[in-house]
Design a protein around this nucleic acid. Structure first.
Length: 480
RNA sequence: GGCCCUAUGGUCAAGUGGUUAAGACAUCGCCCUUUCACGGCGGUAACCCGAGUUCGAACCUCGGUAGGGUCACCA
């Protein structure tokens, strides 16, 4: 058994949406699971659709996603070049070779003739007009410089079949397979021919790609056969959908990796989520590291039907990653977002990070969750009235006064320090701890809902600002 | 239209002839609690339809239906 070699062959025509990324991920997981090599090949033959910077984006995405390739454009493994435009010379040679082997033929039909072949559905099927041209006729036309293409000579009366690793047996009658163009009149290969040649030359053992190739694979297998090459194994992957009818689309920038990063998703959470879209490990685990995914990856856990991308579930998973972090780890990734939210304020950012960790699913939510910090000043007496907390205006006045009084002289502005201080003061004044805590929290923030309670708010705001706010709120309360 | 493929709750999914048809997200309720979250407990909710095979079918077969893919000198 030779070494497993898989490849990911994206074209640099825009964003990388998670469907593309997932295809690459599975090819990577499969290769690593089997101790093989994962190869990156850039398919940039479509110069028309080429997008500036897209190649760099592919490298960046793979890197952030934690998918590292063993061979690729800047990592030669002896099978290069790995950029298709740098391989242009070879395809014509192979096409001509295939003509010699009887698996292809020259075709001189012009566009007009081809267009006339359309049926009532507007679908044109080539009528094999040039398939049986004599050697002399071909020579003559070639010599006369008549433009030509090279077409695949699909054998007649056979059934081409193969065993797909996820879909099982796929078979197509050769009568349903057209003699497709392999080499265009400009001498360049069609995408699929280039693919076959490249995959063979690069020693790809397992071709992993989307289902759009499921039914045309028998046709390409016929090319391998005609060359006398060994056919690779195939793993076709069902599409990821935007909704029940539509696939995720690159053109509309759907669900693209970098957008999610910008929203504050962790790359490993995105990768983890997309691995689960269409694949389920034997033990049904959901949160997994790359290493665990490699370990658990197996072909029969891959589903045959398409799945709809659900950002809500990805958010949840991302939240799980966030919650699993230590406060220090979280602070590191959250810092930029917190900085933006508290600009110009003297607050304890680490304390705020601690509060945010269990309260956001994606980092981008931080600024809205922290917006209340700057909104102090919207005093509303109604916020102090809370039946369940047994707090009304009178209780609130006393509670805030008691808290303020006690906190003024407090040296130890720590969680324990503030807590003990407030609790003791409450007790001494015949108030329940909850009554003081609740009133104090509102007095500190002027907000009905805050991420965290009185103690957390006091720590985040630090002593000076806390005292100031309590004074302001108490004064307003006493005006009521 | 021809050919290929698919079909379990709203979503992701387990399930491979005998199950009270898992689990997760979402949703709803309760508990915990200094508001909010976190956490804990519980609820609602599914085998596309019709025939067959079988003692027995979500699972096997056939036929419908619905959806997707593909039929380019695009990639």
């Amino acid at each position: 058994m030779s070494e497993v070699r898989t490849r990911f062959a994206p074209s640099p025509t825009g964003f990388m949406h998670i469907g593309n990324l997932r295809t690459g991920l599975y090819a990577y997981l499969f290769a690593k699971k089997n101790g093989g090599k994962f190869i990156l090949r850039i398919e940039d033959t479509d110069q028309e659709r080429k997008v500036e910077g897209a190649v760099e984006m592919i490298y960046r995405t793979l890197d952030k996603a934690g998918i590292s390739y063993d061979e690729g454009p800047n990592k030669d493994g002896g099978y290069g070049p790995y950029v298709q435009t740098e391989r242009m010379g070879i395809y014509k040679r192979y096409a001509e070779e295939l003509v010699r082997l009887g698996g292809a033929y020259y075709c001189f039909c012009d566009k007009e003739r081809l267009a006339s072949l359309k049926d009532e559905n507007g679908v044109a099927t080539y009528d094999k007009h040039c398939r049986n041209l004599s050697k002399e006729e071909v020579e003559a036309k070639l010599k006369a410089g008549v433009p030509y293409v090279i077409r695949q000579k699909v054998p007649e009366g056979v059934v081409s079949e193969y065993e797909d690793m996820v879909f099982g047996k796929i078979s197509v009658d050769s009568a349903d397979i057209e003699d497709g163009v392999l080499l265009k009149s400009d001498g360049l290969p069609t995408y699929n021919f280039a693919n076959v040649v490249d995959d063979h030359l690069m020693g790809i053992t397992h071709v992993i790609r989307g289902t759009e190739y499921l039914s045309s694979t028998p046709k390409y297998n016929l090319i391998y056969d005609a060359f006398g090459w060994e056919r690779p194994k195939y793993m076709h992957l069902p599409p990821i959908m935007k909704d029940a009818q539509r696939k995720l689309s690159k053109r509309y920038g759907d669900a693209n990796f970098e957008d999610f990063l910008a929203k504050g998703y962790l790359p490993q959470a995105i990768v983890n989520y997309i691995a689960l879209l269409g694949w389920c490990p034997k033990d049904n685990r959901e949160k997994m590291t790359m290493r665990e995914m490699i370990e658990a990856f197996d072909t029969d856990g891959i589903s045959k039907s398409s799945s709809i991308f659900d950002e809500q579930k990805m958010r949840w998973l991302n939240g799980e990653y966030l919650k699993a972090m230590t406060d220090e780890e979280f602070f590191e990734v959250a810092k930029p977002y917190i900085d933006g939210a508290v600009e110009g304020m003297d607050v304890d950012e680490f304390e705020l990070a601690k509060l945010m960790r269990t309260r956001v699913d994606v980092l981008g939510e931080i600024s809205e969750k922290l917006a209340f910090l700057k909104e102090f000043g919207n005093f509303d007496a109604n916020m102090y009235v809370h039946q369940k907390m047994k707090v009304d205006l009178d209780v609130a006045k006393r509670a805030v006064a008691v808290a303020l009084e006690a906190l003024r002289g407090l040296e130890d502005w720590s969680e324990d320090g503030v807590k003990e201080c407030v609790k003791a003061a409450a007790e001494q004044n015949g108030l329940k701890g909850g009554q003081v805590m609740f009133s104090m929290r509102v007095a500190l923030t002027d907000a009905a809902v805050t991420p965290g309670g009185a103690i957390e708010m006091a720590l985040a705001l630090k002593k000076r600002e806390s005292i100031r706010r309590l004074e302001v709120s108490l004064a307003k309360l006493n005006e009521q």
